[in-house]
C-alpha cells in the first residue's frame, strides 16, 4: 500500500458522510463514496464497503434518512439525505473537530519550536 495514503481515523468516516450529504443533498452509497474520494484528492484509502456500516450507524441515530429511488443507470438504489438532527450533530462535530485539530496543531508547533531551541 502506498505510503502517501491516509488511513481513516476512527469515527471520521461518519462525519464525512454527514458533511457530504449536507452539501450534496440526497445521494446513494456510491455517490457518497465517490464524493469523499474526490474531495480528499484520492489521498484516503476508502474501502467503499465500509460506507454502508457508517450509513447504518447514522440511520440508527436518526441523523440521516433513506429512501428507495432510481440511479443514473436506471437501477433501484437507496438514496440517503441528512435530517435536521443530523445537521445539528454535524455542526457540533465540526466545531469539535476544529477545536481538536487546532489543539493538535498548536501542540505540534510548540513541540517543533521546543525541539528547535
Amino acid at each position: 500500500m502506498p505510503d502517501d495514503k491516509l488511513d481513516l481515523l476512527q469515527g471520521t468516516l461518519d462525519l464525512m458522510v454527514l458533511q457530504t450529504l449536507d452539501t450534496m443533498g440526497s445521494q446513494h452509497g456510491y455517490g457518497i463514496a465517490r464524493r469523499i474520494e474526490q474531495v480528499s484528492g484520492d489521498l484516503l484509502i476508502l474501502n467503499q464497503g465500509t460506507i454502508y456500516a457508517s450509513l447504518v450507524r447514522l440511520q440508527h441515530g436518526g441523523w440521516i434518512a433513506a429512501e428507495w429511488g432510481t440511479s443514473e443507470n436506471n437501477r433501484r438504489a437507496k438514496f440517503y439525505s441528512i435530517t435536521r438532527s443530523g445537521r445539528k450533530k454535524l455542526a457540533r462535530q465540526a466545531e469539535n473537530w476544529d477545536r481538536l485539530s487546532a489543539v493538535i496543531g498548536r501542540f505540534f508547533q510548540t513541540a517543533a519550536k521546543g525541539a528547535g531551541e
Binding site: Q48, S71, A77
Partner: peptide, 12 residues
C-alpha cells in the same frame, strides 16, 4: 442490502 450493494457494484 443485497440490492443496494448490487447497484453500487454496477455503478463502479
Amino acid at each position: 442490502f443485497q440490492d443496494e450493494l448490487a447497484a453500487h457494484v454496477e455503478l463502479l
